[in-house]
């Protein structure tokens, strides 16, 4: 099976086929509705983002709190369509991949082609299993948003399906 490791380059994406199963390792950044709104506000204000977007993987996810002696609680993808409004702006800014569940809008699919990015699907609802693939979790920005804050997750062999590229 194809394996991917962050940080990614456009050539990593170039070889992927839609429908292909891949395993992703490295750092992914969680960002969902509230974080996306803030990221785009930062860009629009001409201010820097709180993490390096270039070559990164955005994971549309809000984890459960970590129980004692665990790295993270259950974590899995949320519905990607709610991020459609923000994604083209982020893709214009820097090359990256997106991870979520469900289909993207025609505008996002077009932007993915235009900027050479990719959208990969995780299996919705398999969150206890996914938690086992997370080796490290650290807050990065917007901690006041609770589960909607941006966390960096170090993942090992996160199973994904290439959906748009």
């Amino acid at each position: 099976m194809t394996t991917l490791h962050t940080p990614l380059t456009p050539s990593d994406i170039h070889l992927l086929r839609e429908g292909e199963h891949v395993l992703l390792s490295g750092v992914v950044y969680t960002a969902r509705d509230a974080a996306h709104k803030r990221l785009v506000e930062l860009l629009d204000a001409g201010r820097p983002l709180p993490f390096p977007l270039e070559g990164s993987a955005l994971f549309y996810a809000g984890p459960c709190p970590a129980p004692p002696e665990r790295v993270i609680g259950s974590v899995g993808p949320t519905t990607s369509g709610r991020m459609d409004l923000y994604s083209p702006r982020l893709m214009r800014e820097a090359f990256h991949i997106m991870i979520g569940k469900g289909p993207r809008s025609p505008e996002v699919v077009a932007a993915i082609r235009q900027y050479g990015c990719a959208y990969l699907s995780a299996i919705g609802g398999a969150a206890a299993l996914t938690a086992r693939r997370v080796e490290r979790a650290e807050p990065v920005a917007f901690e006041e948003l609770g589960t909607e804050a941006i966390f960096s997750l170090t993942v090992k062999d996160l199973p994904l399906i290439v959906t748009n590229r």
Partner: peptide, 18 residues
């Protein structure tokens, strides 16, 4: 995957879904 996830959730006392 979903069946395995349900099993892990029960064993580890973790939420099935985040």
């Amino acid at each position: 995957t979903l069946l395995q996830n349900a099993k892990i959730a029960r064993e580890d006392n973790l939420p099935i879904c985040q």
